[in-house]
Amino acid sequence: MNEKKIKSSLGTILKYVVLIVGALFTLLPFVWMISSSLKSATEIVRVPPSLFPEEIQVVNYAKAWAAAPFGRYLINTVIITVFTTIGVLITTVLSAFAFSRLNFPGKKLVFSLFLATLMIPGEMLIITNFITITKLKWIDTYQAMIVPWLSNVFYIYLLTQFFMQVPETLYLAAKVDKCSDFKYMIKIMVPMNKSPITTIAILNIIGSWNSFLWPLLVTNSDEMRVLSNGLIRFQTEAGSSYELIMAASCILVMPIIIIYLFLRKYVIEGVAQSGIKG
């Protein structure tokens, strides 16, 4: 009996050791980013490296902020994230409502067409979309970075599933009361599905905030750059001032981590849905 007890408590210890090692491996780049961003220019290149800064240099953030127009990049990123997310929510709610409640000719066909587009890698579309944006003379504008992303089929699919679970009888009752479709959608469907709509909003905020390749293609001027593009440029410009590069990286990463920590339930559920859907 005693031997068994020892064995099981050894098992428990081993379990925690593996989890903690895994957690440290996951956290290490984040810890290293923050720690490096607070070191002085001489400490950062010291061998052996110190895990934590000897003297905390918050001034690195101010230096990085002044070395490149990060304020401008931040504003651009916020503008694009906010407008894309609002737009995506509007198109998603409208489409999900059409697919779940309205009856129109060719509905099944259009739905299959929508789903089929999920198989197209967005990366193959950049060539033609770049030509389209050039022809529209949208290069270096906000709409170039917003409009192509105003619809997302995965979100439409997700929300349609949730809308379908709302009992049909509610809809019929509303019809009897002469409630219009649009009013029903806004007053009943949207409030009843706050949670999936929040999930969609957060996933989209994360996606827009972190987007890189498309904004890189459709902007030329420094004033139109988003944070991720500005950061890549700064990486080359700042040379070996790694303490400044790390501070700038923190500026890009932290807002999303804060949102994630507060609303992680929605993020995790949303991503898990994509896996279960298969």
Binding site: G22, A23, T26, L27, L28, P29, F30, W32, M33, S36, I44, V45, R46, V47, P49, I206, W209, N210, F212, S228, L231, I232, Q235, Y242, I245, M246, S249, C250, L252, V253, I256, I257, Y260, L261, R264, V267, I268, V271
Partner: peptide
């Protein structure tokens, strides 16, 4: 669980730059 999922929400660009610092041949961790 929250911790293990962190890399998924983080900007690949920013954390890639952090990794390039970790991989630095002279001063890298």
């Amino acid at each position: 669980q929250t911790l293990f999922f962190l890399p998924y929400v983080t900007s690949v660009i920013a954390i890639g730059i952090v990794w390039s610092w970790i991989f630095n041949s002279n001063y890298g961790l």
